[in-house]
Design a protein around this nucleic acid. Structure first.
Lengths: 225, 225
DNA sequence: CCATAAATGTCGATT
DNA sequence: AATCGACGTTTATGG
C-alpha cells in the first residue's frame, strides 16, 4: 500500500467524465492495483478512483509535472493524475487481510427465522427457504396453523420495494392451484411506515424481527448466562 | 487528515456486528471526523468505517494496547479499534477541496432522446420532458404516429424497479380522461432480462438506446471526424 | 462470464 | 425525519 499526499489535478473519463482542479489530496494505491483519490471529507468515499484490474503508467507532463495514467483494460475507463508536488510518499507492506466477519446480514436473519418459524405465529411450519419461482426465489415458504401457505419476504430494512417484490411473488404463487391461496408476510428488523401502509393495503402482514431475540432463542449456540 | 498504519483489531457494533482479527491495516482519519479502516485490497472500500458526526476516545487497553472507541452519537453505532503496534503515523493539512465536477451521461440521455424522439418510432412527437404528476415527473411524454399518448421512463441501466416506477405513472396517467389511453415505453442503454419480462407482462415496450448513436446524430455537437 | 439481489449501501433533493 | 431515485453504485453469489 502506497500513500501519497500530493497537489494534483485529476481527470476521469469512463462511465462519466469528471474533473478535479489542482489541490492537495491523498492518493491511495493498494496492492490489489486499485487507485483512489481522497479529499479530507466525504467520509470513506474517494473523489475519484479506479478499480482493478488496471495499469498505472508514469510519465512527465509538459511542465515538469508527473502524469499518472491509470487505465482499466476491459472498459476503457481512464484516470489521469497530474501531480505538481509531492508532500508525502510512503509504502507499507500489509500482507493479506484475515478478513471481515459479519453477523446480522439478511442471510443470517433468514436462517434464524427459518429455525424459529413460530416467531410468525403458533403452529407455523417451514416448507422451504429460497423457494424457487420463475421470477426469483421466495425467501421463505411456510404453512400457518390452518395449513394455509405463507410466503415470507425478508429484509433487514423493510422498504416499499420489498412489498412490491412480495406482491409479485404472491401474484405468481396464487396462479398455482396446488399452493393457492398464498398469504404474504413481510418481515424485517425495521419496517418503514409507507411500506407498512402499502403492505396493509395489499393484505400483507408485517412482522418486525428482533435479531438479538431470535439469536437468543437459538438452540445451537447456547450461552453461558 | 491523519494516516495511521498499525496492527489492530476492529469491532463494529451497529447496523450489524463485525469483527476484524489483529492485522496490519491503514486507519484513515479525515478532517470531517470520519474514520475508516482499510486492508490492501477491496479497492476503495474500507473493511470498517464510521461516518461523521462521531467522536473518538482514546484509552489504554488491559494489555497496554491503545483502544480507540469511535462513537456515532445519533445512531449509537460503535467502532472499537485495539491497536497493538504503530507502523506509521502522519498528519496532513489538505484544506477544503475545490470540489468535483461531474458530467453525467444520464442527464444527456434524456436531452438526446427528447431531441430525437423518432428513435422510438416514426411519427413520434414530443409533448414534454419531466411531465409532472402527483407522484413525480415522467421522464418524457410524447405521442406516437397514431396520436396515442406514450410515457417514457428512461434509465441508464434498465432494472425491474424502473418498470415498477413506469407502471405507477401509467396507472395514474390512465386515470386522466384527457390523456387516456397512455402506453408505456421503457428506454435504457441496457435492459435486464427480468425487467424485460416484467415490462412485457405489463404491456410496456422496451427500447435499448445507443448513447453514441444518439450523440452521433446530435446536430448541436458536430464532431471533427 | 452473466444475471440477480444485498449493502453498515451512500448521497442528494424534496416534502 | 422520511421518502424517493441515482450511483462511475460495489460486492457477493449462483447458474
Amino acid at each position: 500500500m502506497r500513500l501519497v499526499i500530493a497537489r494534483c489535478s485529476v481527470d476521469y473519463v469512463g462511465r462519466l467524465t469528471a474533473h478535479l482542479p489542482m489541490a492537495p489530496r491523498l492518493i491511495l494505491m493498494k496492492a490489489d492495483g486499485s487507485v483512489s483519490v481522497h479529499a479530507d471529507d466525504r467520509a470513506f468515499k474517494p473523489l475519484n478512483w479506479m478499480n482493478p484490474p488496471c495499469t498505472v503508467r508514469e510519465s512527465a507532463g509538459d511542465d515538469g509535472s508527473n502524469l499518472w495514467t491509470v487505465t482499466h483494460g476491459k472498459s476503457g475507463e481512464m484516470l489521469i493524475l497530474r501531480i505538481e508536488e509531492f508532500l508525502h510518499d510512503s509504502s507499507h507492506e500489509l500482507g493479506p487481510d484475515p478478513g471481515l466477519q459479519k453477523d446480522g446480514v439478511e442471510a443470517h436473519l433468514q436462517e434464524l427465522l427459518a429455525e424459529h418459524i413460530t416467531t410468525l405465529g403458533d403452529g407455523y411450519a417451514l416448507i422451504r427457504r429460497e423457494y424457487p419461482t420463475a421470477i426469483g426465489p421466495v425467501d421463505i415458504l411456510c404453512r400457518d396453523a390452518e395449513g394455509g401457505t405463507v410466503a415470507v419476504e425478508l429484509k433487514r430494512r423493510g422498504d416499499i420495494d420489498g412489498v412490491e417484490q412480495l406482491t409479485r411473488y404472491l401474484e405468481l404463487l396464487n396462479r398455482d392451484p396446488a399452493l393457492k391461496p398464498v398469504r404474504g408476510v413481510f418481515a424485517a428488523q425495521e419496517i418503514k411506515p409507507q411500506a407498512r401502509v402499502l403492505a396493509h393495503d395489499r393484505g400483507i402482514d408485517c412482522v418486525t424481527l428482533d435479531y438479538d431475540e431470535l439469536r437468543g432463542i437459538e438452540p445451537d449456540t447456547p450461552r453461558l448466562f
